[in-house]
């Protein structure tokens, strides 16, 4: 086994996802199978290989840091499930 149900439970907490016990068992089995396949990478010796995080060209498209027209408050809040007085509204942070 590459991964056990307790690790999957821990990762679910990190990812802010809830699962039933049945789902946890299914995910443990599936993730274990995927991780078993991924283990293939350990056949390769890579300690002296530089990592590649991104293949974009080095020079980035940057613009001047200057204020410009942007979304209005109304537009920015238009998709919010709940909002009030120019703010996003959420349930209590500490219960």
């Amino acid at each position: 086994m590459k991964i056990g149900i307790e690790t999957v439970r821990h990762v679910a907490r990190l990812a802010n996802l809830d699962f039933s016990d049945q789902e946890l068992e299914l995910f443990t089995r599936q993730l274990d199978s995927i991780l078993g396949y991924i283990d293939k990478l350990n056949e390769l010796e890579t300690t002296r290989i530089e990592p590649t995080s991104h293949v974009a060209r080095i020079e980035q498209t940057l613009r001047e840091d200057r204020a410009a027209e942007s979304l209005s408050v109304t537009q920015a809040l238009a998709n919010a499930p709940e909002s009030k007085d120019h703010h996003f509204t959420v349930p209590k942070v500490i219960s």
């Binding site: 802010n16 998709n79 959420v90 349930p91 209590k92 500490i94 219960s95």
Partner: peptide, 23 residues
């Protein structure tokens, strides 16, 4: 579930709202 997209109803606190909205 804060700025856009689906939000679960009736969560007691923020953490539960995040988890249930995503799940």
């Amino acid at each position: 579930g804060v700025r856009y997209g689906y939000r679960a109803k009736g969560a007691k606190d923020l953490g539960e709202m995040y988890r249930r909205s995503r799940s």
